[in-house]
Amino acid sequence: MNLLAIGAGIAAISGIGAGIGIGIATGKAVEAVSRQPEARGSVMQFLLLGGALSEATAIYGLLVAFLIIFFMKP
């Protein structure tokens, strides 16, 4: 069980990548909006899309952690 918990914790580390990715995407979006405030709408669309896609990696890590905890019970 302890090893399983450690495995689940390691899987949850994937959240780091998603956090960095979304941070970079949001920063760039803010830059783009401040440079071109009239393009706010389309920038928001792309930010939402990029955020959703980069978030997927964290979600997959979470899924793996759940699978480890609930389906690999000894």
Binding site: A52, L53, E55, A56, A58, I59, Y60, L62, L63, F66
Partner: peptide
């Protein structure tokens, strides 16, 4: 897969 997992993962988290 990504649509379902994203929604599920966010809400259950």
């Amino acid at each position: 897969l990504s649509l379902a997992a994203r929604l599920f993962g966010n809400i259950i988290a």
